[in-house]
């Protein structure tokens, strides 16, 4: 059996790893060397882990992904279109006068995530928001005329019952914040570029 071969210079079994405490005369020098070598090894391993982790971040082509142009001309008052941008839906809504008035009339104190309508809209009557519920990422209903729009006339998320108003602000339900307004710009009076 292997025990019969118990090595002559083995450190006492009871002491766990760390062996190599031989020769007290050289103990400190060796320990210092070991410390330096060990630190080097730790730094090396740490440095090599980063490329692996970073490889899971969005790649360069994903980051450079094209912006999306949305022509507005064909969207009638009261209607909305959904366009795809970065793999997610963007809601572009041509709001009615009543909806705009309603959105502007809400006192900020009533809002969970207080934000005036003016800060969410670049040019009336267009509201542009990411169609992603801020709760857990479902796409809220309210784009089609037949959809339920919730209690505040904006959007209603069917997954867990969040209600958004005509400015895309959270009014009721579990979602913590308003629908996100993406970066966009008017490239002409009838076209926006998202991204």
């Amino acid at each position: 059996m292997a025990e019969t071969l118990a090595p002559s210079t083995a450190p006492e079994l009871g002491q766990t790893q760390g062996g190599g405490e031989h020769g007290p005369d050289q103990g400190t020098k060796r320990d210092f060397l070991k410390l330096v070598a060990g630190s080097f090894a730790a730094v090396g391993v740490g440095a090599i882990v980063w490329p692996f982790i970073h490889s899971m971040n969005p790649a360069k082509d994903v980051l450079a992904l094209a912006s999306t142009d949305v022509p507005l001309g064909h969207i009638a008052e009261g209607q909305a279109v959904t366009v795809m941008w970065r793999g997610k839906p963007v809601f572009v809504r041509h709001r009615t006068g009543a909806e705009i008035t309603e959105a502007k009339a809400v006192p900020l104190a009533e809002l969970r995530d207080p934000q005036p309508d003016g800060a969410r809209v670049q040019r009336e009557p267009w509201l542009v928001v990411l169609g992603v519920c801020t709760h857990l990422g479902c796409v809220p209903l309210g784009q089609k005329p037949t959809d339920a729009r919730g209690d505040f006339g904006g959007w209603f998320c069917p997954c867990h019952g969040s209600h958004y108003d005509t400015s895309g602000r959270i009014r009721r339900g579990p979602a913590p914040s308003n629908l996100v307004v993406p970066d966009y710009a008017f490239t002409s009076d009838t076209q926006i570029r998202v991204g």
């Binding site: 692996f52 490889s55 971040n57 790649a59």
Partner: peptide
């Protein structure tokens, strides 16, 4: 980690490997 970015399809395999080389962070290294 390569398999996370590789596409096993005859029409895309070659380009997906080159995408790893060019666009994926440290993809060339891996």
């Amino acid at each position: 980690f390569l398999a996370m970015n590789y596409t096993a399809h005859t029409s895309m395999a070659f380009d997906s490997v080159e995408r790893i080389m060019r666009d994926v962070n440290y993809g060339w290294l891996i």
